[in-house]
Amino acid sequence: MRKVLGDYTYCLDSMYVLSSRASLRKDTMVTRRNIRFTVDGLSLAGTLHEPDTRDAGARPAVLVAGPSPQVKEQVPDTYAVRIAAAGFPALTIDFRGFGESEGQPRLREMPAGKLADLRAAVSFLAAQPDIDADRIAIVGICAGAGYALKAAAQDPRLAAFAGIAGFYPDLRTLRDAMGEDGYRAALRQAIEVLAEEDRTGEVGYLPHVGPIGAHALLQGGEVYEFYGSERAASANYRNEITADTMYTMLTLDTATAADLVGVPALIVHGEKDGACPPERAVAVHDRLAGPARLEWLPVDTHIGFYDDEASIGPAIAALTDFLDKSL
């Protein structure tokens, strides 16, 4: 399958060939290696994108965490191939319960499980003979940025963190926005889904996205324009999620992890983002314990960071500059 992003062209088979702009090293060849590793008794699938730079010695590497509930072949691979073309081996994974990875129930957002998966992915990278275990960075996009932030706080092997168009939930901010009564009412309604699962033993599902008025987790807007079209097409992606996901969203807090992230950090965000408000990116940046850089891009989109060169190109340029200086 061939995708085209601006002046970049790559083939999603065994080899990528990219033409160049400022953020890429010209004519860099990137190979793709399918890998598997085990965590909590589960076999997880990943893709290691490796630059054919023939450099001597071990190289720094990057772990890429994508949006939820995406699979590795979607946005994660889009970023990983560009990162690899800049000279950094880049690993994408299917989290447990998604894509080609094992795990039950399928399509459930499991924060603790995702963090364990990222930890095991770091272990995989650190064990590779051509990768410098002391120079591994983690990069996240959308919800993956929040998980990457928390991973960077909890795993001292990670030498740098970057979040792109990040979703950084903060429970106190959410409760204040909804009001105490509103938050408790939403929480009670959401937990009833899990209570029903407790009673019946059956896992409920609903569409991940749908048009306005549909019975779906997310409705309308640019999110539906992306996931509800061929733009999000992938053999391993299903427009479905467990019905308890709203409870997870109401109880997930990754923003406060910034207090414990002392490694070099980069936040890339659009000046306007209806899905992930820019003020949340500022709040995370200001909480970071180590050296931090906040890069604003003059765009008014969130989903543009998924497949629009106007957002992806500048984000990759800022990211590769940061990686060059931090690893």
Results as ranks from 00 to 15, higher is better:
Arg21Trp: 08
Gly166Phe: 02
Gly204Asp: 13
Met249Leu: 15
Glu309His: 03
Gly103Asp: 10
Glu222Val: 07
Arg82Ser: 04
Asp40Gly: 04
Thr47Asp: 12
Gly179Ile: 08
Ile141Tyr: 01
Arg32Ile: 13
Pro69Leu: 09
Ser311Ala: 15
Asp13Ser: 13
Arg21Tyr: 05
Ile131Val: 15
Arg32Met: 14
Leu158Lys: 02
Tyr10Trp: 15
Ser68Ala: 11
Gly182Ala: 00
Gly144Val: 04
Leu125Gln: 03
Val299Arg: 02
Pro314Val: 05
Gly6Ala: 10
Ser123Glu: 15
Ala61Phe: 11
Asp132Trp: 08
Tyr10His: 10
Leu187Pro: 03
Leu174Asp: 04
Thr173Phe: 06
Ile131Thr: 01
Lys272Phe: 08
Gln74Gly: 06
Asp134Asn: 14
Pro69His: 10
Arg2Pro: 01
Val282Gly: 02
Leu107Lys: 04
Met29Thr: 11
Ala148Lys: 04
Ile138Trp: 03
Gly113Cys: 08
Ile312Phe: 07
Gly163Cys: 04
Ala121Lys: 07
Asp7Gly: 15
Thr28Ile: 10
Ala137Phe: 08
Leu252Glu: 08
Ala232Ile: 06
Gln104Ser: 11
Phe37Ala: 00
Pro111Leu: 09
Gly46Asp: 07
Asp27Gln: 14
Ala162Leu: 06
Asn239Lys: 01
Asp117Leu: 04
Leu327Asp: 00
Gly113Glu: 11
Ala283Val: 05
Leu218Cys: 08
Leu48Ala: 00
Tyr168His: 04
Arg175Ile: 01
Lys26Leu: 12
Ser68Asn: 14
